[in-house]
Amino acid sequence: MAFIEFRGKKVEVNEEGFLIRPEEWSEELAKVLAEAEGIDELTDDHWKVMNYIRQYFLDHDIAPMVRLLCKETGFPLRYIYQLFTSGPARGACKLAGLPKPDGCV
């Protein structure tokens, strides 16, 4: 297992940087995850996407379909890919503190 240093303590992540314990997520931690993802500054639009994913995950224990993501944020699909260049799974879900989604991602 790998760790990232955050506020003097170690937060466990898997080898691809996904949190092992989603409950350890915080907005400050998301900024650290974003840096590792190559996103220098999280904009309001990033937060809108991440907050929706986060809430959906807390309610349903799974990441939302990208259709819902577009519908609820009002963002076109291609804009979401621009915001998170690693895609909704490896980018947005990771920053929102979700475990790595199953399947071909």
């Binding site: 379909m65 990208v66 259709r67 577009c70 989604p101 199953d102 071909c104």
Partner: peptide, 29 residues
């Protein structure tokens, strides 16, 4: 991770546990 993808496929019909309703909603969109 690999086992989990197999299990999801066997138990839900696809490896990401997408429901029929979710698929239909997406395809209509």
């Amino acid at each position: 991770g690999l086992q989990s993808a197999v299990d999801k496929a066997v138990t839900t019909g696809n490896n990401m546990a997408i429901t029929e309703e979710e698929l239909i909603g997406t395809l209509q969109w």
